[in-house]
Design a protein around this nucleic acid. Structure first.
Lengths: 185, 185, 185, 185
DNA sequence: AATGAATGAGAATTCATTCAT
DNA sequence: AATGAATGAATTCTCATTCAT
């Protein structure tokens, strides 16, 4: 993650945290302002609306995953197994340090039926995740199998993050990651 | 599900639908009232608050699962495999007919950090689900393995319901159910 | 006070208590109903509206004072001093046993600017009180003096009841009563 | 009273007026807003809640009395008699110009049983009033007598303000003030 | 960029009252 | 007389957003 933080980026980071912990509706512009040392109205100098801010948060996370995690699928010197291990370890590390679980996952259920703008971004993120795993698995197990496994892995990961958060216990998530790694010999 | 509906139960059913589709914050008492052919204030004649109504919705679903699905774990004449198949088929049937996915799962992410009352009920539901699968698997694969598999199954099911909703495509969920059934020979 | 209580009277007595403790706005029809073992709507079988019920409460108290206390002014065998003592003792006894102070006094400030119906009754009550004391004092100290003293006594009594309630301490009220009695030699 | 009014102070002054005339429950935030040329929600920009606003109103009045009236008890060059006269004249002037009587007195009866926050402030005000008169009288009539007289004066003043309001006639109040002044030779 | 005040729409909730049974 | 359900208006309070400074 970058060292130098623009104000814009700093607001996004603070907002991500709040959105994850309190949800979209549960996070007020006032709370975001306060977390940034600003007054609520001042957020609007940086983001046109709450919705746009939320979208930027989703994109920010998506970009981070693209650069740091999804790209592993094309990191050439690595074997498929090595890719899968690295991918899974990175995912694990990210979510273990991420209080509040997965923002994209959380938002899925709260806004996907009501907000197409945010929904599109969420879909794009999960599709990219799936695609990366597909790329990793395909050379080993073939197209059809890889397709199915990829989606299962995303689903199981999201489900276990959800339970990790609900139970306040990271074990389900860690076990799940082991299972993923063991998919390839 | 019962044919005769008390007023109370009818409100709960209508509310479940709205909560699933629009989330907790996104569902207003006015909307619930309207869906029930009542004026918003009238809901308070039956439920003390929105929070209590939501709790009753969660309990209603939990009770349905206990009676119709979780109980399969102790339905004696069946073999473990038969139990697992029946259990999974019932889950599949329920969620395929349930527009908006799993209310308990949806609420997990929106309210669990902010509402201990609702969170407790959600935790109880998922623990009961886990426990049922554990009871089914244990005779076949032993305690430790059954414990781990049970939690993975719950996580993967929830994750695939979430993706089913997000993608508006039931395939991920159906594939997941096949995988679960194949766990036992 | 009568031994046989009609339902009507019983509702009035319960309402007086609630009105004294919680005020007019602070007392709901539901609370009155509950105190009477009825459902809130049922009160309307006995009283047309909250306002009418409150008016009946004021009249009920007023009548009690007329019969038991104000009438002392014309109770013939007694001397002025004896009348004053008896009057004051009766007043003291009533308000020491009356949790919540003087309903008429309480209502004065909450309702008098907004509800002419209730205001009229309150004015009538205080005028009658004043008049009684006037009648007692006049033979001893003359018309003009008696007029002024009467109003002072009513004011001081109400003020001390108010402080008694506020401080939860009956001393101010008791001292005040002593002073009143000492007005006549 | 100051000529320049901050917005905050202006809201308090408008609110005091409304609370005095219509009582606590009878005064809506919408009415306060309207009186201030604001929309109802805007009041919350300045005061967290209706209760807090009411408390600020009580404190505002209390402070005014401390500075302008209660302090007379310690205004050194004056004799006890002069203090008592000045004190009483100031009280008279204040309440003759104060449509709606004494806010603290009004609130005593409406909210003291239901709102500890406001009650505490009301008690503090009346105790301070009592204490001031006690300080004025003590050098002349001794501790015990001064104590009793002080409380009687507060009670009688409040009672006569109440009657002044009820009867829409200031005579009872003016007579009462004369009596107070005549307490000291 | 930031602030503080204001807005307007809408949220949950309360409550006196009505009415069919 | 009593009940339980419903009503509709009002009330407190919230919140995303705007705007003059």
């Amino acid at each position: 993650m970058p060292v130098i933080k623009t104000d814009r980026e700093s607001i996004i980071q603070k907002s991500i945290h709040l959105f994850k912990v309190h949800g979209y509706s549960g996070t007020t512009m006032a709370a975001i302002g306060e977390a940034c040392g600003l007054i609520k109205g001042s957020i609007y100098h940086h983001f046109k609306s709450k919705e746009v801010l939320a979208l930027e948060c989703l994109k920010y996370i998506h970009e981070y995953f693209e650069k740091e995690i999804f790209s592993i699928a094309h990191r050439e010197p690595l074997s498929s197994k090595e890719k899968l291990i690295l991918f899974t370890k990175k995912v694990e590390k990210y979510f273990l340090n991420s209080e509040g679980g997965c923002l994209l996952g959380n938002f899925t259920l709260e806004v996907s039926n009501n907000n197409p703008l945010l929904k599109n971004e969420i879909v794009a993120y999960f599709k990219a995740w799936e695609e990366s795993i597909y790329e990793i698995l395909r050379p080993e197990i073939g197209k059809k199998e890889a397709k199915e496994k990829a989606i299962q892995i995303v689903a199981a990961t999201q489900g276990s993050i959800m339970l990790m958060r609900l139970y306040e216990n990271s074990k389900p998530f860690k076990i799940q990651n082991k299972v993923i790694i063991d998919l390839l010999p």
